[in-house]
């Protein structure tokens, strides 16, 4: 995982609540056995006017001109601004893989679904929860000025607007540490290998039926 560094990026507004992971990446693209290449199919049903197929060359597909990510002013966006309960539904990690592959590093919304929240951080994407009012203000800001950018300062847990206003956000210490240092969870967990083995031994003694195989 790449280290998450302080950066300043273009913001794309997706003015929609309950954006589900089926919408982020439709099921036909889940057939891939790779982790990469999902970016061209991010928001496929909103982004294109036809039905997409896995493995298809997307460069000639008809684009939906009304969809934000197709509008020139949001080209190269790295920050996605959305409404409440972003990422609900299926546990597919293909959703953060698609966001990351497209180029998004941050999603800002008033709330996120639990499984998506976990999955995003494991792929180096920072999810920032701000209040409904703050999100409203950011939508107004993006709407009002072309090329609207936000500075994301994870170290100090602040989003800084173009007029210099800092919006504070919460993020748990462990996820922040992993993101800032680009750390692999499994390696960290395996440092506790002895503790896991000791637990497993005790657990098996207390409840042997949990370890049983059919005859």
């Amino acid at each position: 995982m790449k280290k998450f560094t302080r950066f300043d990026g273009v913001v794309a507004p997706l003015d929609r609540a309950n954006v589900d992971t089926d919408l982020i990446i439709p099921k036909q693209f889940l057939k891939s056995i790779k982790r990469t290449g999902f970016g061209v199919n991010l928001f496929d049903e909103l982004r294109y006017l036809d039905e997409g197929q896995p493995g298809q060359d997307c460069s000639n597909r008809p684009l939906n001109p009304d969809f934000v990510l197709n509008q020139p002013r949001y080209k190269g966006a790295e920050v996605l601004l959305a409404r409440r309960n972003f990422g609900c539904g299926s546990s597919r990690e293909h959703a953060p893989w698609a966001l990351e592959d497209f180029g998004f590093r941050v999603v800002i919304a008033p709330s996120f679904a639990d499984i998506f929240y976990n999955n995003a951080f494991k792929n180096g994407i920072l999810l920032i929860t701000l209040s409904e009012e703050e999100v409203d203000q950011l939508f107004a800001g993006v709407e009002a000025s072309e090329g609207y950018r936000l500075e994301i300062d994870l170290e100090n847990q602040r989003v800084i607007t173009p007029d210099g206003k800092a919006l504070a956000f919460e993020v748990d210490a462990f996820r922040k540490h992993c993101l800032l240092n680009g750390l692999d969870d499994i390696g960290i967990t395996l440092q506790d290998e002895d503790a896991i083995r000791a637990f497993e031994q005790k657990h098996k003694q207390a409840r042997p039926w949990l370890f049983r195989q059919p005859a």
């Binding site: 982790r35 546990s91 597919r92 990690e93 499984i115 976990n118 999955n119 494991k122 969870d185 967990t189």
Partner: peptide, 9 residues
């Protein structure tokens, strides 16, 4: 439910 990184974990 968990994501694929967690399946690996």
């Amino acid at each position: 439910g968990i994501g694929t990184s967690e399946v690996e974990h």
